[in-house]
Design a protein around this nucleic acid. Structure first.
Length: 567
RNA sequence: UGACCUAUGGUGUAAUGGUAACACAGCUGGUUUUGGUCCAGUCGUUCUAGGUUCGAGUCCUGGUAGGUCAGCCA
């Protein structure tokens, strides 16, 4: 068996999710020769990882089945939308590595067509102008268990409806004075079918159409028709639109022309992540109330936040693949997200040694004023990344937590009289602990074994611990921003009687200001990712200055030792 | 108490009427110049009660639990 056939078999074996099954059936049955999907954000906020799931799903389907994927802004509500959001969404989709089919599209491009179809529906007796107020419409809609009641507008003549709708368009009425409604069924058990509003009056400036319109179509009347115009075959959305599907189909039924593609709406369960919130409204609240520094705060589950945190597009795609696509409500363990980024960064990240809480050590038997440069592997997972050299000298820093004055045998880092390896350098032994008057340890006096250069002793003597270290005189000072989960509760917005902000983790950000890095790090480029050995993965922040380098901690390394300390 | 949807290890996702699988997390051990990586082991009466069938996680019926819907938001 060749590598290729093995790979193909492996791909064949991969189970299909329910959407892929539908698509394969549609292709096999000849219903569609080519599939077209779409990602349809409203430009009223920043994209989050839940959107990433949807983007990866839709564009992934396009790639997998050699079809196309459109990017369309669902911009039917001018008072909430803005070009700022259009720009950030475009950036996020591109960063994820996707290129949409043709130009970026806007639902607002279809306003003329939508208007013409609305007139057509009026002429067919399927839509009417209603002059009830919002409150009246709501009151007369009934409840899920009680049918609604018709308004007088429902019986208007076609001519009058056409006249009124045109006057709505011409701006003869104030906001809220009239709406256009579909004439369906006021007693339908599905609330969405009780004569839904198609158009409302909003004398508002639209980010694309300016002041051309003062009536704007509602989502339900816009989305399916936009899909239809673009020839979308599979219109994939989240579960809360399930109840809208009969309405989606109803509009399409009445404007459909034989021979055209009729899109099919398919719903899947949105992503929920543990220890965070995912609604645009709540994320906006975190920004507005300054719990975070902005939409791209590295603690935010936004795509821009994850990007700044150091996540890679690849890791997000692997994550999306692992969580799958189904219709069941879910809360994904944030551990799985962390696993995905660790897995990728482990393969690609340059290793480097950084001491975050320095403890000075002096190698008493090392010559004063001298230093030497020792080779260090850049990435043990990828030897093609080569080696670099790290400077060693008489005065070094190690991590405070790597020394314990009174340690049990399970602690195999440095202790008085104990020997450890300094990675890529020498074995050292701690002979004396220097303290200040308050009893705080200020320095360790150690000796090194010159024969153990590189990290192995010729006498075959073993040492259990290996520490990272930095030469004091060569050290580069850097800052590290350490992020933890934003909430202390697994599902902060799942409580009916408590506000999600009550669960905010007040220690989600801590800054280590006095970190010592090996000199190699000086050449780090903006947004470059590293593994600081034994600690975690870090990215040089996009706003970092050359003389004041700031790294964001993407994720720690897995630490099976830490877990045991608390036992 | 209307309509629609969902129910499989701690968390997700598979199994398309024929031995419940994979990943993550947890726990045990092994390897290791990162307590990382890697490797091995371990963790389930498929919500429930009936029914169909030689055979049911899968099909049927009833129940239970959860979700969605009463914006001129999307």
């Amino acid at each position: 068996m060749t590598d290729k056939t093995i790979k193909e078999n492996a791909e064949e074996k991969k189970p299909l999710n329910f959407i892929e099954q539908i698509i394969e059936e549609d292709i096999n049955s000849g219903k569609h020769k080519e599939i077209i999907t779409r990602f349809p954000p409203e430009p009223n906020g920043y994209l989050h990882i839940g959107h990433a799931k949807s983007i990866i799903l839709n564009f992934g389907l396009g790639e997998r089945y050699k079809g196309k994927t459109n990017l369309r802004f669902d911009d039917t509500n001018p008072v909430k939308e803005d070009v700022e959001y259009v720009d950030s969404i475009l950036e996020d989709v591109k960063w994820l590595g996707y290129d949409w089919n043709g130009d970026v599209r806007f639902a607002s491009d279809y306003f003329d067509q939508l208007y013409d179809w609305a007139v057509m529906l009026i002429k067919k007796g399927l839509a009417y102008v209603d002059d009830q107020s919002g409150e009246e419409i709501s009151a007369n809609r009934g409840t899920p268990s009680k049918p609604g009641t018709s308004s007088s507008g429902r019986n208007r003549s076609i001519e009058e409806n056409i006249d009124l709708f045109e006057r709505m368009k011409n701006g003869e009425f104030k906001d809220g004075e009239k709406v256009l409604r579909a004439k369906i069924d006021m007693s339908s058990p599905n609330m969405h079918m009780r004569d839904p509003v198609m158009y409302r009056i909003k004398h508002a400036h639209h980010h694309r159409t300016g002041n051309k319109w003062c009536i704007y179509p509602m989502y339900d009347y816009t989305h399916g028709q936009s899909d239809y115009i673009e020839g979308i075959t599979h219109s994939i959305c989240t579960l809360e639109f399930e109840n809208h599907r009969p309405l989606y189909d109803w509009f399409l039924e009445h404007i459909y022309e034989t021979g055209k593609t009729k899109p099919r709406q398919i719903e899947f369960a949105r992503l929920n992540l543990s220890y965070t919130v995912m609604s645009k409204r709540k994320l906006a609240q975190l920004v507005e109330e300054k719990y975070v520094s902005g939409w791209d705060d590295p603690r935010m589950p936004t795509i821009s936040g994850l990007r700044r945190r150091g996540f890679t597009p690849e890791s997000l795609k692997v994550f999306a693949e692992k969580i799958g696509v189904a219709k069941r409500e879910n809360i994904i363990d944030v551990d799985l997200l962390e696993f995905s980024i660790r897995e990728h960064l482990n393969k690609i990240a340059q290793r480097v040694m950084v001491v975050q809480e320095p403890l000075k050590i002096t190698i008493t038997n090392y010559p004063e004023g001298e230093s030497e440069w020792l080779p260090a592997v850049n990435n043990p997972e990828d030897v093609s990344m080569g080696e670099r050299e790290v400077p060693f000298s008489k005065t070094l820093y190690i991590e405070q937590e790597d020394f314990l004055e009174e340690a049990d045998k399970k602690f195999f880092r440095l202790k008085p009289g104990g020997e450890v390896r300094l990675r890529y350098a020498y074995f050292i032994k701690c002979n004396e602990v220097v303290k200040d008057k308050n009893g705080n340890i200020t320095e360790l006096l150690c000796t090194y074994d010159p024969l153990s250069k590189g990290g192995n002793s010729p006498d075959g003597r073993k040492v259990k611990g290996t520490l990272h270290w930095v030469s004091a005189e060569h050290a580069v000072d850097i800052q590290i921003k350490q992020y933890d989960r934003l909430f202390n509760d697994e599902a902060p917005d799942s409580y009916k009687d408590r506000n999600f902000t009550e669960f905010i983790n007040l220690e989600s950000l801590s800054v280590a200001k006095n970190c010592k890095a090996e000199p190699y790090l000086k050449q780090a480029k903006q947004c470059e990712r590293f593994q600081f050995e034994r600690k975690g993965y870090y990215i040089l922040d996009k706003e970092s200055k050359h003389d004041n380098m700031v790294f964001n901690r993407t994720v720690t390394l897995k630490d099976s030792w830490k877990n045991k300390i608390f036992l």
